[in-house]
Amino acid sequence: MSAADHGGSGAERFGTGSASSHHGELLQGVFRDAAGRRCAGLVTLPMAGLGSRARFTRRPGTPPERLTVRPADRAKAERAATLAVRECARRRGEPPCGGELRLAGGIPVGLGMGSSTSDVIAAVRAVADSYGTWLPPDTIATLAVRAELACDPLMLDARPVLFAQREGRVLEVLGPRLPPLVVVGCVLNNAEPVDTLALPACAQDDTDLRAYESLRTLLRRAVATRDVRLLGEVATASAVRGQERLCHPEFTALTDIAPRVGAVGVQIAHSGAVAGILLDPAAPGLRHRIDSCVRALRSNGIPVTRTFATTPATTKETQRGPAHRGGDRPAGPRAPRRSAHLPAL
């Protein structure tokens, strides 16, 4: 029996949903879509182990505006739940109603790991579950963009895609999966959240478009040929361009450390402070290179967070740090952080 079957007619119905997070981007910029139109796009770096969980209790017969969310500051998730209620009620031929949305999870806010999108998708899935229905990824993406203006492709499967975040659509499926990577994660700028709305506007001209399209071609080739080094070059080039807006003071140290430890490159969150040094797991001396990377980051005052792999085969070997404990993450961009969260995001 599904969660939506609990309770009789007119009784409260509940549903649950969840969504994953990511570790920033491998590529972000401006690209052409299939019609030749210019649009913003990104390719995220997936990361297992963190995400949002939602439980939605709908109350048939109550006004749809009587919808509450806990924690109360999750305005984007609240908007998403309201939109999802309307969509699911329409599909079921029922009037929309109110309810209560509860969110939990461990994604740090403001670091560029998709915390708001994860909340939004978990909320939409919980609402759909309460109605006993399933919403396809493109519908979830549309609702997510309406709720937060731009979203990450966390509603899709693990295939690497170039995603138009402001439109909620896939520009290109780059291949079946990323080449195997080991990522030594860290945070820049003292882990300060990034207010993306306060960043200066970045005008993208035809020169920028050609550069990003070239990186797109290289990333497509890297995925097709499983070329870890080429993928690292693309991610580094995109990160360098991203620093034109973010201006993290430790970024130069990050790019200096990477070649010294035999890394293939670096990646960053283009809308946050999380970053990573990318290693080829097939190259000799992986454990030594990870340890050298961690020491070099710490010696430069850069907090190390988590080492993880993009493929299940190497995750257990390379993941470091204590297991993350569940619970609500700090609410709001300026909420105090518990230091225990940084060693293992």
Rank of each mutant, 00 (worst) to 15 (best):
73 D>G: 08
138 D>T: 14
126 A>S: 15
88 C>P: 11
255 T>D: 04
75 A>L: 08
318 T>I: 06
95 P>C: 02
249 P>D: 08
323 A>G: 12
274 V>T: 15
307 T>A: 02
228 V>C: 07
50 L>S: 10
76 K>I: 07
169 R>F: 07
113 M>Y: 03
27 L>N: 08
247 C>R: 15
324 H>D: 03
4 A>K: 05
304 V>M: 10
234 V>H: 10
15 G>M: 08
252 T>I: 10
333 P>I: 13
130 S>T: 00
325 R>F: 07
8 G>L: 03
131 Y>S: 12
172 E>Y: 06
11 A>R: 05
262 G>R: 13
128 A>N: 07
69 V>N: 07
193 P>T: 15
236 T>Q: 11
92 R>M: 06
87 E>A: 15
1 M>E: 09
200 P>C: 11
76 K>L: 11
87 E>G: 00
133 T>K: 04
90 R>M: 06
7 G>C: 14
239 A>E: 05
132 G>H: 11
41 G>P: 04
50 L>N: 02
190 N>E: 14
250 E>I: 06
65 E>K: 08
198 A>T: 11
232 G>F: 02
32 R>K: 13
343 P>D: 10
177 R>M: 08
340 A>E: 05
300 N>R: 12
253 A>P: 01
332 G>V: 10
235 A>E: 09
290 I>F: 10
145 V>M: 09
152 D>E: 10
39 C>Y: 04
51 G>I: 05
297 L>Y: 09
102 R>T: 14
163 F>S: 03
104 A>M: 13
34 A>N: 04
343 P>N: 06
310 T>W: 12
221 R>P: 01
89 A>W: 06
272 G>V: 13
254 L>P: 00
138 D>A: 06
309 A>F: 05
37 R>K: 11
63 P>F: 02
277 I>H: 12
228 V>G: 07
310 T>R: 12
33 D>W: 03
343 P>Y: 01
166 R>W: 04
177 R>D: 13
332 G>R: 10
344 A>G: 12
210 R>N: 08
12 E>V: 15
146 R>M: 02
